[in-house]
Amino acid sequence: MRQLLRIFLLFIIALISGLVINELHPRGISWRLLFIPLFSQSSSEKHEYTVTSVDSAFVLWQRKEIFLVDIRSESDYLFDHIPGAVHISLKELKAGRLLKIAQPSEREKLLIYDGEGNMGNLNLAARILSNQDFPEIYLLFGGYMAWIQRGYPIEGGDM
């Protein structure tokens, strides 16, 4: 009986240590993601996401009403990106990285973009974020390429 208790205790200690290590880890799994069944709404209440044109996106960006998420490769992002955008890979999105980065006020309205508006990637990213209860998600039609073609501002590009 004492052995069973010790084994139980061992796993409890492991769980607590694991949670502490995860919290200290810069790429750890988000707390919110660990307790997502407690936070998430029923499937009927899931939030919608909208495909938006580059011009509408530009207006939202100008008003500073939107949090920009760049899901291209890190090297593409480092080369140039929409000013104010943060880079997050799909894998990191899945792990709830955005929940750690974005302040609660910034989570209200998100715009996700990739290189050329690949709807497969964008839809996947939107589904992931929708499951994490981000209320308003926009997908940039035509991607970063369309943004550049319209001559809208970019950051970087001087490398």
């Binding site: 061992l10 796993f11 200690i13 492991a14 769980l15 694991g18």
Partner: peptide, 9 residues
């Protein structure tokens, strides 16, 4: 979270 911490301990 649980498995690697268990292995460590």
């Amino acid at each position: 979270i649980l498995i690697p911490a268990s292995e460590l301990i």
